[in-house]
Simulated scan of single mutants.
Amino acid sequence: MKLLITGANGLLATNTIKHFLELGHEVKGLLRSKEKFLLPPHKNMELVQGDITAVSAVEYAVNGCDAVVHIAALTAPNLPNYNSYYKVNVAGSENLVKAAIKHKLKKFIYVSSANTTGFGTLENPGTETTPLKPPFTASLYAKSKLEAQDKLFTYADKIDIVTVNPTFMLGPYDGKPSSGEIILMGYRKKIIFYPPGGKNFVDVRDVALGISAALEKGKNRETYLLAGENLSYQEFFTKMVQRSETKTRLIKVPKPLLLVAGYAGDFLRKLNLKTSVASANMKILCVKNYYSGKKAEEELGVHFHPIDQAIDDAIAWFQKNGKL
């Protein structure tokens, strides 16, 4: 099978490309800059430079492929308005599915986000049927991913559309870095300030396996949460301390302080200034947004590992590449 994988420079796409090449598939990677690609050349891999917001680039990219794994997205938390997210995450995704239908591709795997579904507690974690709720209803990124997901499903009578919704991914090949920034923040630091909430952490390689399983077994119009281990931020950063030779002090940042900072960020956004500090983002740091990957385990056969190995491998990769 020949696969188009978008966002090929990213943490998830790089690991997904590596996985499919190891399985013997052909891969065409769509990316904006070939120079930033982290994997070595491979006889079954072709890199195509382009942008999903450009119809001509998308048309060229899908040609000759059997299926699409759409990972590319605008994830920056600092943009002040919705238009930028819409252009890439919604309109860009629609460009891609229209091209896939035109070229008669068989399947379209859309990598959405766990934040398009409602979170739960440690005892009753969120599932695919849990309705979205605050503070994620105010997240521009989450809003765009949910809108894209709903938009793509309107084409499910013309091509099989399967959505996978990973939580917070960690692992090797995080070149930007993206989510791995949390490891750089906590490893070998003398003081770590952590928020009162928590989240679900998942090994990026388990997500790649989930994508592969969704391509093989995923049902049309279905959504699958790819969720690993639920941890408070205190528990996560304690893992960082255990891996460091540095004597570290953990200090919890009070919720009221985060909210004050968030409202100040809202004011800056009204001035059209870029900042990742916003009330929605600060409120998200204060809740324990926990999820369950049970449906993916039962229907796709995916097994989710504890996050420890992903942390170790991410640290090793950052060290090897001079980021730690």
Rank of each mutant, 00 (worst) to 15 (best):
L268N: 08
K270S: 09
S144W: 10
F267E: 07
A278S: 15
L146E: 00
P177T: 10
P166C: 06
Y141G: 12
S179Y: 04
T154D: 08
R249T: 15
V162P: 10
V253E: 07
G171I: 02
L258M: 08
I192L: 05
A261P: 06
R269V: 11
D160I: 13
L209F: 01
G198H: 01
P256M: 12
I183N: 02
T167I: 02
Q242L: 15
S212G: 00
K151I: 05
E245A: 07
L257W: 07
T246L: 09
T137G: 05
L257C: 07
S179L: 02
F201I: 00
L231W: 01
L146S: 03
I251Q: 06
D206W: 06
T154P: 04
Y263V: 13
A227F: 05
E181T: 15
T248C: 12
L273F: 12
P166A: 07
D206E: 06
Y187G: 01
M240T: 06
A148W: 09
V204G: 04
T154N: 09
V207A: 11
V162L: 09
A156E: 14
I191P: 00
I251W: 10
A213H: 11
D174Q: 12
K199T: 05
K274E: 13
E222F: 12
L140T: 05
L184S: 12
Y187K: 10
K219E: 15
T163H: 08
K158N: 14
E245C: 00
L250W: 08
T246Q: 12
Y187Q: 08
K239W: 02
R243D: 01
R221I: 12
K145W: 12
P172G: 11
F193Q: 07
G175C: 10
L257F: 14
L268W: 11
S144D: 06
M240P: 04
S178W: 03
T163P: 02
L259G: 03
E229N: 07
K151C: 13
D160R: 14
K274A: 10
P195H: 06
K176Y: 07
F136P: 01
V207W: 09
Y194W: 06
F237H: 13
T167S: 09
V241Q: 05
G210H: 10
G262T: 09
A148M: 11
S212I: 01
L271H: 10
G228R: 00
E147G: 00
L170Q: 00
Q149T: 14
Y155M: 05
I161T: 01
I251Y: 10
K270A: 11
K217T: 12
F267V: 15
L152P: 08
A208W: 03
A138W: 01
K145M: 14
G265E: 06
S232A: 05
E222I: 08
T238D: 03
K189C: 04
V241F: 00
V162W: 07
S179T: 13
A264C: 15
I183W: 11
L215I: 06
K151D: 06
Y224Q: 11
N272D: 14
K247E: 15
L184P: 09
N220P: 11
G228K: 02
F236G: 01
T163K: 04
K219N: 09
R249A: 14
T154G: 03
D174F: 07
D174N: 08
F237T: 10
Y224H: 13
S144V: 13
Y173I: 06
V202D: 04
A261L: 15
V241G: 02
N200Y: 00
N220F: 10
